[in-house]
């Protein structure tokens, strides 16, 4: 469990950092994976997160953090290669398969995930979840979108706005 001293370049054991979720669960993860988060990258470059300290993430619970890190670990090698150039078609297909599977989850989890990705500034994950949400609401009426995403019942004003919009933009509702 003891984290090795920070690795120097690509040789030797990878540097590990510890992240602490809002419910005080500790996650040990390679610095390269955690660095997909722009927010964490700064702290890690400053030498934070090693040893017994850990980086507290008061806005991310352990369930969400574990999911976020699953994404980061999977995407870290490609990110380290600077994305596409060295990736083979097989690698890319595998990542795509992973991504599709990864967001095949309940909308409330998607919500936690995109908020965490936003919080931690993980660009790829934000885009991935955003695309999934877009897929979920495509072709739906505003009311169906509200149901899909678990909105409360609309207020009379919201209902009126939806009705008026539908009248005004009838062609978009065909």
């Amino acid at each position: 469990m003891a984290a090795p001293e920070s690795g120097d370049g690509n040789n030797g054991a990878a540097r590990m950092v510890t992240l602490i979720s809002s419910d005080n669960t500790r996650f040990e993860v390679e610095a390269a994976a955690a660095s997909l988060s722009q927010t964490l990258q700064l702290t890690i470059l400053d030498g934070g997160g090693g040893g017994g300290d850990g980086i507290p993430l008061p806005n991310v619970d352990s369930a969400t953090l574990s999911k976020v890190l699953e994404y980061c670990i999977k995407h870290a090698p490609a990110a380290a290669n600077g994305g596409a150039p060295n990736a083979t078609a097989v690698d890319r297909a595998e990542l795509e398969r992973f991504d599709n599977e990864f967001v095949n989850i309940d909308q409330s989890v998607l919500y936690s995930l995109i908020m965490a990705a936003h919080n931690l500034e993980i660009e790829g994950l934000q885009s991935l979840v955003a695309k999934k949400v877009a897929d979920m609401i495509k072709g739906k009426s505003p009311m169906e979108i509200r149901r899909t995403l678990g909105f409360p019942d609309p207020t009379p004003e919201e209902q009126a706005e939806m009705n008026a919009h539908m009248l005004e933009y009838g062609w978009a509702y065909e």
Binding site: K131, G150, Y173
Partner: peptide, 29 residues
């Protein structure tokens, strides 16, 4: 989850991959 409260840049990410008819419908949610 409170999807109506997510930051504007996030909902914009969603909207940018929608077609125009979807984009219009989403705007009245």
């Amino acid at each position: 989850p409170d999807w109506s409260g997510i930051p504007e840049d996030l909902i914009a990410l969603v909207m940018r991959v929608l077609d125009i008819p979807d984009l219009l419908r989403v705007s009245s949610v």
